[in-house]
Amino acid sequence: MTPRVGRARIPGQAAREEGTAAGPRTGDLGPGPAEIELAVNGTARRLRVEPRVSLLDALREHLGVTGPKKGCDQGACGACTVWVDGRRVLGCLTLAVACEGREVTTVEGLADGDGLHPMQQAFLANDAFQCGYCTPGQLMSAVALLEEGHASDDAEIAEWMSGNICRCAAYPNIRAAIRQVRDGGGGDRP
């Protein structure tokens, strides 16, 4: 079962059901650059990358999608948190080629046109960031957190947000933002 995360605007929801053939490919790709297609924020994007290119680098360096941040490149900070098939994961430990046939959502895909997602509004209102560098990852975790049902109280929020390090230490404000969206009826409704 794949929990759905975020708004209904994640198209396709190519759920990772068992037996679903994810990509059209057979045979080896690479090691040189190969053309692949990624569905990023609902748009099909073609790019030429080597298999060793991480999803994070593909987004940032090849597609100009720089919302996801590189903080440690080894899964120790959470700044690169994005959703793949609606689940929050780390872009730095994911290969771009492995995401063919899956839906990738970044912070750029959170807002509905000009209207901010309620969680984005709550982060603004609660000053849930300072330098803003960990913020895209915090937001992707925060919205997912509500969908997962891991926001019953502050202790649970804190634990399930601990994979996103904020060196400015805006943590109490991040919790306040999440509470606000939770108590306003959840992150789904504007």
């Binding site: 053939a21 994810a22 490919r25 057979t26 080896d28 790709l29 690479g30 090691p31 298999p51 060793r52």
Partner: peptide, 11 residues
């Protein structure tokens, strides 16, 4: 990172 090839296994 060294270069490597990639393939997806079907079964």
């Amino acid at each position: 990172m060294r270069p490597f090839a990639y393939t997806r296994a079907a079964d």
